[in-house]
Computed example of a mutant assay.
Amino acid sequence: MLRKLVLEIICLLFILLFAYTAASKFLDYENFRAVIGQSPIITRFAPALAIAVPVVEIIIALLLSIPPYRRLGLYASFAIMVLFTTYIIVLVTFAEKIPCSCGGVISRLSWTEHLYFNIFFVLLALLGMWLHTKQPNDPPVKNRFIHGLTN
């Protein structure tokens, strides 16, 4: 019972995080695109990433909100948070000018606070993956790559 409640809370936190940041990026799309265009690491990919990142965040939020796909959503949450955290570490380590392309109130965090925030969510995703056990109603996974990730 407690396991299920904690898992529900973790999923809800990720749904809120991804829905909020995706909406924020779409609502201020021009600014988001401009800021990621200033990034020394991803400049050439900025136009594609300006659409892809919030779309992926929405997809992950949807996966987490549909119980049979929750496991895949937790793995995707972990993966994207690791990517975001790695990006922050690389930026802070190697970049002179560090633009923040995060949405809403998250963009007001310092880079150190942002790093801690991301690490917290990486750990939360790990806890969610650990708590989630394969349910009988989980959809069968045909793709070997995804199958390897979810087993």
Rank of each mutant, 00 (worst) to 15 (best):
W130H: 11
T93M: 14
I66E: 00
V141N: 11
R108M: 13
Y69H: 12
Y87E: 05
Y75S: 05
M129C: 10
N118W: 02
W111C: 06
I106K: 06
K142E: 13
L62M: 11
C102E: 00
N143Y: 13
M129K: 02
T133W: 09
E113V: 00
L74V: 02
T112C: 00
L109C: 00
I119R: 09
I66D: 00
L64E: 09
L109P: 03
P99G: 01
L83Y: 15
W111L: 07
T93D: 13
L63R: 07
L62D: 03
Y116N: 13
F120R: 00
A125I: 01
T86R: 09
V141K: 12
F84W: 08
I59G: 06
I146N: 04
F78L: 14
M129H: 01
I60L: 10
N137M: 13
R70T: 07
L62Y: 14
L63W: 14
N137Y: 15
S77T: 02
I66C: 08
P67C: 07
W130Y: 14
T133A: 11
W111N: 08
D138V: 03
N143C: 13
L91H: 06
F84R: 08
G128E: 00
S77V: 02
F145G: 02
F145K: 09
A79D: 03
L109Y: 01
T85M: 06
V92E: 01
A95M: 08
P140N: 12
T85H: 04
G103P: 03
L126C: 14
L64W: 08
F94E: 14
T112G: 14
M129L: 11
P99E: 00
I119P: 05
P136A: 12
K134L: 13
S65A: 11
M81Q: 05
A61P: 06
P136S: 13
L123F: 15
H147C: 13
V122G: 10
P139V: 13
L124V: 04
E96C: 07
Y75R: 03
I146S: 04
A95Q: 07
W130E: 08
G128F: 02
S77P: 07
M129E: 01
L72M: 10
L64P: 09
V141M: 13
M81A: 02
I88M: 09
L91W: 05
L131W: 08
Y116M: 12
Q135M: 13
S107K: 03
V90Q: 07
Y75E: 01
Y75K: 04
A125T: 06
E96V: 12
R144M: 09
R71P: 05
L83G: 13
G148Q: 14
